[in-house]
Amino acid sequence: MTEYKLVVVGAGGVGKSALTIQLIQNHFVDEYDPTIEDSYRKQVVIDGETCLLDILDTAGQEEYSAMRDQYMRTGEGFLCVFAINNTKSFEDIHHYREQIKRVKDSEDVPMVLVGNKCDLPSRTVDTKQAQDLARSYGIPFIETSAKTRQGVDDAFYTLVREIRKHKEKMSKDGKKKKKKSKTKCVIM
C-alpha cells in the first residue's frame, strides 16, 4: 500500500485542523484551538488504489514558523489553505509557496490551493482571484467548507493525484537520464 505524506499549511484560523478532522473523523470542530502540530493517518481508496494518507496539520501562528522547514522537508505534497473571508490569509499563500519551493529546492512541488469556509456569506476573496492565482502557479484550486464537508475529500484526493503525477514524471525523467548515460565512448 502506497503511503502519501501530505502537509496542510496556511495562516492561523483558516480551518486547516477543521478540514483535516472532517476528512479523518467526519465531524466539524467549530471551536478554535490553535494547533502546534498534529499528525493523522487514514486509509482510503483513490482511483481504485488503496493508500495510506499521513497528514500533518501544522501551526499557522507566526511564533511556530521555525518548525516549518522541518515538516516541509518531509512532506510530499501540500494543501495551501486560505479562508475566503480573510484576504490576508490569501496573500500569505505566496509566502508559504515560496518557502516550500526553497526548502524542497524545487520549482515543481505537488500543491493544491484550497479556499476554505465557502459556506460563509462574508467572502472577501473572489473565486476568480483564487483561480487566477492557482493557474499562475500551475496547481489545482478547490473551494471547501469544513463545516458542510463540501470539497473536503476532493481537496485531499486531488493532492494525492498531483503527487502521483509528480512521481510518474520524475521516474520518466530518471529513465531518460539513465538511457543517456548508457551511451559509451570508444577510443581507438
Rank of each mutant, 00 (worst) to 15 (best):
V125Q: 11
N86P: 01
V81N: 03
K101V: 05
D119K: 03
C80E: 01
V109Q: 02
I100L: 14
E98Y: 02
N116H: 15
K117H: 15
L79F: 04
V112T: 02
I84V: 13
E91W: 03
P110F: 02
E107G: 09
F82P: 00
P110V: 02
Y71I: 11
C80P: 01
N116P: 00
Y64R: 09
A83R: 04
T124N: 11
A66M: 10
E63T: 05
V125N: 10
L79S: 00
Y71W: 06
E63N: 13
Y64K: 13
M111H: 01
R73D: 13
Y71C: 14
R123S: 14
T87G: 09
Y96T: 05
G77P: 00
T74P: 08
E107D: 13
P110H: 02
L120Q: 07
D126V: 06
S65F: 05
V103L: 14
I84R: 10
P110G: 01
G75R: 03
G77W: 01
D126T: 07
M67C: 12
K117N: 14
I100S: 02
V125M: 12
G75L: 04
Q70T: 07
V81T: 07
M67D: 14
E63C: 03
Q70V: 05
V112L: 05
E107Y: 10
D119C: 05
R102L: 06
R97A: 14
R73H: 13
D105Y: 03
R102E: 09
A83E: 15
E76N: 07
C118G: 10
T124I: 09
E107I: 13
F82M: 12
F90N: 04
F78H: 02
G115D: 02
A66T: 10
R123Q: 13
K101W: 04
E107A: 09
E91R: 04
D119A: 04
T74A: 12
L120F: 11
D119M: 04
K104A: 12
C80W: 03
N86G: 11
L120V: 11
I84Q: 15
S106R: 07
M111T: 02
K117Y: 15
M111Q: 01
R123N: 14
C118I: 10
D69C: 02
D108L: 04
F82L: 07
G115W: 07
R73G: 13
G115C: 11
G77K: 01
V103Q: 07
G115P: 04
R97H: 12
S89G: 06
E63G: 08
V112Y: 02
S65D: 13
A66Q: 09
G75P: 06
N86M: 03
Q70M: 09
